[in-house]
Computed example of a mutant assay.
Amino acid sequence: MFIKAALNGSRSKADHPDIPVTTAELVAAATSAVLAGAGAIHFHVRDHNGKETLEPQFVNEQVKAVKAAVPEIPVGISTGAWIVPDISQRLAYIREWEVLPNFVSVNGHEAGFERIIQAILDKKIGVEAGLNSAQAATNFSSSGLLKECFRLLIEPEEQELTAALATVKAIEDKLTDKQPHQTVVLHGFDSTCWEILKVAKYKGYDLRIGFEDTLLDPSGAIAESNEALVKAAFHWS
């Protein structure tokens, strides 16, 4: 069973005191998640004030530290448009990265995602296709770039389970050009997280779990850590 640990997302310590933000916290969270069985690490880079960033200084620092802590494990980061809304600045930052993640996620619903993917591919970094809707899947397919992605992230954002599952089905129906080598990760957020994880297991998809996706364990209690969420995911059915 493959599980990617999503350590922090856009959450802050106001959401949970153990959301990893600093480099040391990310290293500790990644290490414990891998010891719990995670096969990949995903996080959102933060600056020294805890703000999400793609600035080379902080990408280099945090990616280097996390990769050194879990050297056999692929490490990825987000390129979400909200982190650096100016696409020209976002592209400039990406081109200046020196310590490279193994992969990044790129969202198909964001304007200019094609340019971001090309900049990432130019640096020989793997691309995950972020698919939160049928339109995002259509955008990827129409661009001709879906085949360049090694992993497809089906990630419905609806908080009502029936609606979220309808989005999953709509995305799947659009993936007619999925390649045999591409893996699929299915995950939900917050109120749908654990039920969608069940669906992912049933469909034979890879899994994602961590504080980015939920603050709660399957019982509904506040989760202690990313490590605890990874352990719970292995046993949840």
Rank of each mutant, 00 (worst) to 15 (best):
M1I: 06
M1K: 10
M1S: 11
F2Q: 00
N8K: 10
K13P: 00
A14P: 00
A14C: 02
D15E: 07
H16S: 00
P17N: 13
D18W: 05
D18I: 02
P20R: 13
V21M: 12
A24W: 00
E25T: 04
E25N: 04
V27H: 07
A28W: 01
S32Q: 10
A33D: 09
L35I: 04
A36E: 05
G37W: 05
A40L: 05
A40W: 02
H42Q: 04
F43S: 01
V45R: 08
H48R: 12
G50L: 04
E52W: 09
E52N: 11
E55D: 12
P56W: 06
Q57P: 01
Q57D: 11
K64R: 15
A65E: 11
K67I: 01
K67V: 05
A69S: 14
A69K: 03
E72A: 15
I73L: 05
P74F: 02
V75Y: 08
G76C: 03
G76L: 02
S78P: 05
T79A: 06
G80Q: 01
D86W: 06
I87F: 03
L91M: 00
A92I: 00
Y93N: 08
I94T: 02
E96I: 00
E98S: 09
E98N: 00
V104Q: 03
V106Y: 03
N107R: 09
G112I: 01
F113T: 06
F113L: 03
F113W: 00
E114Q: 10
E114W: 02
R115A: 14
I116E: 06
I116L: 01
I117Q: 11
Q118C: 04
A119S: 10
D122P: 02
D122C: 02
K123I: 02
I125L: 00
G126S: 09
A129V: 01
A129R: 08
A129N: 06
N132Q: 03
S133L: 05
A136E: 10
A137H: 02
N139E: 11
S141R: 11
S142N: 11
S143A: 06
L146D: 04
K147N: 06
C149F: 07
F150Q: 04
R151P: 03
E155R: 10
P156T: 00
E157M: 10
E158W: 07
E158L: 02
Q159Y: 03
L161S: 09
L165W: 12
L165Q: 15
A166N: 13
K169R: 12
K169T: 08
A170D: 14
I171T: 09
E172V: 09
E172Y: 08
D173P: 03
D173S: 15
L175E: 11
T176W: 14
D177L: 10
Q182M: 12
T183E: 13
V184H: 10
V184C: 06
V184I: 15
L186P: 08
L186I: 08
L186A: 13
L186F: 04
H187K: 05
H187S: 11
F189D: 11
F189P: 06
D190N: 13
C193H: 15
C193T: 14
E195C: 07
A200P: 05
K203T: 02
Y205V: 01
D206W: 14
L207T: 10
I209G: 13
G210H: 09
E212M: 12
E212C: 08
L216M: 14
D217H: 11
P218R: 14
S219R: 14
A223V: 00
E227Q: 15
L229S: 14
V230T: 09
K231R: 15
W236C: 07
